[in-house]
Every structure is written in C-alpha cells, then in structure tokens.
Design a protein around this nucleic acid. Structure first.
Length: 768
RNA sequence: GGGCGAUUAGCUCAAUUGGUAGAGCACUUCGUUUACACCGAAGGGGUUAGAGGUUCGAGUCCUCUAUCGCCCACCA
C-alpha cells in the first residue's frame, strides 16, 4: 500500500470500476426484498450546482447504500425534470429571447439542447460524488414513456370526473403569459403607496376608501364594510360613483371586512385579490374583466387602454390628484404574490383552463399524509399546513411551448372533449390527427388542445412512472421519497393527490426531508448571491468522501452551513482509516481462526463493536445517518484507535505467537466491520481498503451483525489506570513512549489480573 | 397576526424514558513514538437565552418573555 492516500486516483479508479461492473444496476427475482427510491428529478435549468445539492442528494444516498448492504435490491434511478416553465425561462434568459418573438420549433430545439447539457452537468457531479444510481434507468420528464404516463394520468383523471375545464378567474403571470397555480406563488416585499380616494355618493358627501391598486378602479363592482360598523350603517341602499370612470356601485356588508384596516371601507374589483374573488363568488357580483394576457388594461380601461399595470396606476393616480379625488398617500411596504419563476406580481384574469379537484378534499389529503412515515416526523406539519391553506383547485394547463401536451381534442362547435385511445399514447394533438374526423355528438370539426402541462403535473407521476420503467407493479408504492422541504407543497402533495385518485394508495411509504445548504455566514446558498463554491471544484479540492462526510453534519430537515473545517475533518478520518489499514495490513499473517484464544482487551473491543453495530443499525433504520456517523466515528477514533491499537502493540511486536494471533484476528475483524459501517458515508476509501482483504465490493457485502460477547466488566478499571498514567506522563512532560521505572497507581484495579497488561500497554516497569 | 422549528463551551453540534452537562474545532502546555506531523497526549473553558412552575431531582416536562430561521395569512 502507498504511504499516502491519493484520493483523486483512488476515487477515480472505483468510479470507473463500479461503472464497468454495473454494480448498482437494478435486478431482482421473486422473493427479493425491494427498496425503491423516487429521487427528485432536478431541473436541468439549475446549472449552478453547489454544496446544497451535494448535501441533499448525499443524505439520501447514505440510506440507499445502507439498504443495499442490508440485502435489499435497490432500484435507484435518476430522473431529470426538463419540461415546462423552468427550462423555458432558463432558455429565455440565457439566449435573451422572448417566447413570442421566436418560432415554436426553434424555441423547443434550444430547450432540448439545454436539457442535454443540464443532464450531463448533473451526471458528472453525481458520478464524482459516488451517488450510486442505476444509470441504465434514467428518465427525463419529456421523454416518450414519462409523457405517456403523464397523459394516461390526465385521461384517467378526466374519466374519473376530477379533471375539468372551465372558464374561471385564475392566477396568471403577465410576464410568462400563462396560467399558474397556487404553489407557483412566492411572497415578495414591495414598496407601494396606500392611496386614500374619495368616492362621491349621489346627492351626498363622499366616502373615503384606501387602496394600493387604483388602476383597478374601472373593474370596481361594489364597496364593502363591516355590518357592525356604525360609521357606514346608513350607506346601505345608496350608490357611490367610482372616480374617473363614473360607474355606479352599491354598498354591501361582510363580516370579513376589518373595521380597523384602511378606512373600514373596501372596494371590490374583479379581481384584485383573493378577497375580491370571494365576495364576487358569494354575492354573485358583476364580472368586469380588465386585464389582457400580457398585463395591459383592455377597453374597459377607457383612456388608459393598452397601458401596462404599473403605467396605468401612475397615470390614474395623477389624474385622481388633478381632479381632487386623491385625499392623501402613505408609503407602505407590503408583500405581494409574485410568480416564483420570474418575480412578476401575479394577476387574476378570466380564462378557460384545466383544473384538478383538490380544494374540497382536504380531509382526504390529510388522511393520506398520515399514512406516510415522515422523517423527521414534524415535517408532516408543513404538509398539513399547506393542505389546510388550499383555496384553489390545481390549475394544470399552461400556455407554453416546451412541455408535455394535453392529450385532448375538442369539437369546435359543441366543445365535446375527444380522448385518444390509450394504446396510441403518447400523442401530440397539435401535430397529429384526432382519433375521429368529426364530433361524434354534433358532427362538428375537431381542433387540438394547444396547452401543455404544469411541470408538477408530469413530475407528480414519478411514483408510478418507476414501475412502468420496469414493468412490475411490485415497485409501487415506492419505499423512499427524499427531497428538500420546499417541494412538500408541490412535488410531494401533487404526488399524493395523483396516487390517491389513480390507485387510492399513498405514493411513497417513507419520506426524508432535507434542509438547505447555507453559506459560512448562515445565509441560504443561492445563485443570485453567488455565495458558493461550485460543486465540481469542491469535489476536486477535497475528494468525494470528505464532502460526503460534511453532508452528515446536519440531521434530517436541518439546514447545514458550509464549513471547510468539517470537510477537513472528513479528510482526516479518511487519512486515519488509511493509516490504520496500513498498520493492520503490515502485521497480518494467515492463520486458522478456530485456534485463537482471545484475551480480555480483545473481548472488550468486540463487545464495544457489537454495541456500535446495534446503535448504527438502529440509527440508519430510522434514517438518522448523522447519529449513525457519530456512533461509528466515536467507536473508531476513540475506542479502536486511541485505546485498542495501543493496547495490542506490545503483543504484535512481541514473541508470544498465540497472543499475537488473537490480537491480529481481532484487529482485522473489528476493522472490517468499521469499514462496512463507514461504507455508506465514505464509499471510496472503504472500498479501496476492503478490496485488499476481500475480492468483492464492500458495497454489495453484507451489513455487520451484532453478536453476543462475554467480556470482563472490570477491564474498564484497567483502562482508567492507563488514563491515569497517560495523564501523569503528560503532566510531567514525559514522552508516552518512554518507559517509567515505577508508578504508584491511585485508581483501584485488580493488579493480579491486569498488572502485566497495564505495564506493557503504557510502558511502566513497576506498578505499586 | 397564526403555526412549526431552534437557542447548550469562543465556533459547529451531542445528551436514550427527567438522574453527576459531553465531543470536535479553536485555545494553552507537552511529546519526534516502530499506523498516522495529513500526528499523538493532557489541560483550561458552561447559572444549558431569560423568568416562573411541576418534581426528591429539569438542558429535558408546563407557562410566559426575548432573539433567529422557515411555512401560512396579510394588497381594503
């Protein structure tokens, strides 16, 4: 063995070896125990890989390697989420193009090109980190099979009556020009002005209303106050005139109006916010649709027609001021719902879209959530909070180019929906003919649906996509879904929705939720802040094992700071394992194990080892890789290196062959189990060392089993005695290697039994 | 405003069911020793955020307060 451990050469060697031997390729036969992992398919548009990515994927992979050693046949494919808005936005930004100013064909080609690149970037990183996925089973969400499964899913939902198409006020992104869903929203603090406007009342004085959105005045349809509000009681039955636009609106009351907010009077427009929508729905108010899909005022805006929202707001405020309707203004900051992909404030517009029923089935979603084992447990709360906050059905249609098409055609006359035959899936309605030439109901002509699916409508199929990839229903539900907490409300929730509707089953039995990677100051790592070292540089500098070690630093659900010291510590452990390996290797000879007569220190370390195996196994079983690492490391560094190796040196160098063999056997046995326990976390160094002893990969070897060992309970006293002498030597500045002539021991210990051992282990000639 | 997490040594974190607060890093001192200077040994360092309560006993359970993070709500 080389004197120094060269991680670059070694890690590269095993990467190639595993790849060549297809070590992680999935295969199983009847009776095998399966472990199916539904890994988050990353957006290929996320081209800035950093420690946070390493952390979350490594944490899941610790469990995967552990399960494999436990004898499970692991199905661990990798997917890529490459369709939909994220990719389009990425391409738009990168090539500085606008969807509306390029042809659909060119645009899709660029998306596909970037998709390919993205997959390569990810694949390189996973490989360098030793993420043991089965690369022969890779999917991308826009490929034929996933498209087929996503389309089948929609057809099934349609047949079950839970997918419907309706014209409704929906969440709309004026920048991306597409419908979006509640889960695509993000909060953003914005500076704004609260405008206090005077609304004249017929034959009377005016009332004052506060609003941040005067540009919605043309769509104002009613004014509301709280029924207990004495100030406005007598307004019922009267009408106010909307400033500038002059439509008459009536006063209404609602318990939901807060007397303390603004002036206690609220204007309802169609539609500025959730509250508007609810009043509109409840009181059956008039519909005044004001916005165009690109976020401009339509003809209802009169002289402001064609202006963008912000421009119209400014112009209207100016005119209000001029004509004396603006009483006063206040600077405020408030949070605004923006589209998370582009930061544009979202609007509500009337549009015909496809929806999946979710808002009325909260109880069902909660019930399904309870059937899943959440790691950590409290993450279920996050899920339940989201479910309870649902207000809208899931809008799954998007007016974009690069995505999985809806598998539907319509009758242009009666609107009848035409479904394809399931055996013809996948289909692309805009490019192929419908299964019928004319509407079977009215004989009208057929037009294709041009919408594509929301990205989550495709990725939420992965739990049952996996079984389709293998063609075996036993793979569903999957055993483990690992992901970060921000996609509980999307990927996880929608997966639960779909599996419930399709199979009345949970999609995954276990979910492990990871935290975020933070920079050294504790800030979330993000592309915008640039506060990260690219992942490939990290691996190059420290090696995969050391980085993976760092990833054990936070328990499930916890954020983890980037910390070079912890990576260094990982490197130190790798080096330590290497040095121990050299030491043991040098002193090993072949012998028959049955002749061995173990001595007290041997029994002690074996007993300690079995305790460690028990604890590490339990921790890994509970997805607590951080705890497992702590237990293994403590045993290796303190018990094995600091004590046991020191205890047996004199036997290894001595003349008593029987005693020497016992020490050697124990060293080897314990060390191999240490390697095995470290293997899920440090796959490279453990493989390198293990294959010096064994001819197979450590990663398909079996996880150690704890055995019962009868040790000598009073041996602990001998260890205390050795501690005492170590301390004495250190305090008196004597080298640990120097032999003391004589020492008077304070610690109570059975010297008849352990005197000789202590003298030799810590080098003292005479103990009193 | 509601909820969920967190707060333990200078730093990063442990602490089974309530039972003498522990590691690593950093710091101080020592040690070239035949696995390891990519090293080893020893040492100093804590009113467990604060205040109450339950208990023979609280880092751990309860109540309140403060600070931080996240989720949800908040556009009148």
């Amino acid at each position: 063995m080389d004197k120094n451990y060269d991680f670059k050469t070694v890690e590269d060697k095993w990467r190639k070896d595993w790849d060549k031997k297809e070590l992680f390729k999935f295969s199983f036969k009847e009776g095998d125990r399966l472990f199916v992992v539904d890994t988050p398919p990353p957006y290929v548009s996320a081209d800035h890989l950093h420690a946070g990515h390493i952390m979350s994927y490594a944490q899941a992979e610790f469990i995967v390697r552990y399960k494999r050693m436990q004898g499970f046949k692991v199905f661990y494919p990798m997917g890529f989420d490459d369709n939909g808005l994220p990719t389009e936005r990425f391409v738009e930004k990168k090539y500085k193009i606008d969807k509306s100013r390029t042809t659909k064909k060119e645009f899709i080609e660029l998306c596909l090109k970037e998709t390919e690149k993205g997959i390569e970037t990810y694949r390189n990183l996973w490989n360098s980190l030793g993420i043991s996925v089965d690369w022969s089973k890779t999917y991308s969400t826009i490929a034929p099979l996933p498209t087929k499964v996503s389309q089948w899913s929609l057809i099934d939902l349609y047949k079950k009556g839970v997918l419907y198409r309706q014209e409704l006020p929906i969440l709309w992104c004026p920048h991306c020009q597409t419908a979006i869903s509640q889960s695509d929203l993000e909060d953003k603090e914005k500076n704004s002005k609260m405008n206090y406007l005077s609304f004249p009342i017929e034959n009377e004085e005016s009332v004052v209303i506060a609003t941040t959105r005067p540009e919605l005045l043309p769509a104002c349809v009613a004014l509301y106050f709280n029924p207990t509000d004495e100030r406005y009681k007598e307004l019922i039955g009267k009408k106010a005139i909307v400033p500038l636009f002059n439509q008459e609106v009536s006063f209404k009351t609602s318990e939901a109006v807060d007397k303390e907010k603004g002036t206690g009077l609220m204007m309802v427009c169609t539609w500025g916010d959730q509250e508007d929508l609810e009043k509109w729905r409840m009181d059956n108010l008039e519909t005044k649709s004001l916005l165009t899909p690109d976020g401009k005022l339509n003809e209802l805006g009169q002289k402001y027609q064609g202006m963008k929202i912000e421009a119209a707001r400014e112009a209207i405020i100016n005119d209000l001021k001029e004509q004396g309707f603006l009483i006063r203004q206040e600077d405020i900051t408030h949070s605004v719902n923006v589209h998370e992909r582009c930061d544009t404030p979202v609007e509500l517009i009337l549009s015909k879209q496809w929806f999946i029923k979710i808002a009325d089935l909260k109880e069902k979603w909660l019930e399904m959530g309870k059937k899943i084992a959440w790691h950590p447990e409290y993450m279920r709360d996050n899920y339940e909070i989201w479910v309870n906050s649902l207000k809208w059905d899931w809008c799954v249609s998007r007016q974009r180019y690069y995505g999985v098409p809806f598998p539907f055609w319509y009758c242009s006359d009666c609107g009848e929906v035409i479904l394809p035959d399931e055996k013809d899936l996948p289909v692309s309605p805009t490019e192929q003919k419908a299964p019928v030439n004319e509407c079977p109901k009215c004989g009208g002509s057929i037009i294709p649906e041009t919408d594509v699916m929301d990205t989550w409508a495709t990725s939420s199929c992965t739990p049952f996509l996996l079984k389709e990839m293998i063609g075996n229903d036993q793979l569903f539900p999957v055993d483990l879904r690992p992901n970060a907490h921000e996609i509980i409300r999307t990927w996880d929730f929608y997966s639960i929705v779909k599996s419930t509707y399709h199979f009345n089953a949970i999609p995954f039995k276990n979910i492990m939720v990871s935290g975020h990677g933070l920079d050294e100051q504790g800030k979330k790592i993000s592309k915008r802040l640039g506060n990260y070292v690219p992942s490939d540089q990290l691996v190059d500098e420290w090696g995969a094992d050391a980085i993976r070690y760092w990833a054990t630093g936070a328990g499930l659900g916890q954020n983890l700071r980037f910390n070079p010291k912890e990576i260094k510590k990982g490197k130190q452990i790798v080096t330590k394992l290497w040095n121990v390996a050299k030491f043991i290797d040098l002193n090993l000879t072949d012998f028959e194990e049955k002749e061995i007569k173990l001595e007290t220190p041997d029994l002690w370390i074996l007993k300690e080892m079995n305790e460690t195996i028990k604890k590490a196994t339990e921790s890994f079983d509970n997805y607590e890789y951080a705890k497992a690492k702590g237990e293994i490391e403590e045993f290796f560094m303190s018990k094995f290196c600091d004590y046991y190796i020191e205890f047996v040196k004199y036997r290894l160098y001595g003349e008593d062959n029987e005693s020497k063999k016992a020490a050697q056997t124990t060293l080897k046995k314990v060390f191999i189990n240490i390697l095995k326990m470290f293997a899920p976390i440090l796959p490279f160094i453990t493989e390198e060392i293990y294959q010096n002893f064994a001819k197979e990969s450590i990663h398909i070897s079996s996880w150690p089993k704890a055995e019962e060992v009868k040790d000598e309970p009073d041996f602990i006293e001998a260890i205390s005695a050795i501690d005492e002498i170590r301390k004495y030597k250190s305090e008196n500045q004597i080298s640990l290697g120097a032999e003391l002539e004589e020492y008077k021991l304070q610690t109570k210990v059975n010297l008849d039994k352990y005197g000789e051992f202590i003298k030799k282990a810590i080098r003292v000639k005479e103990i009193k």
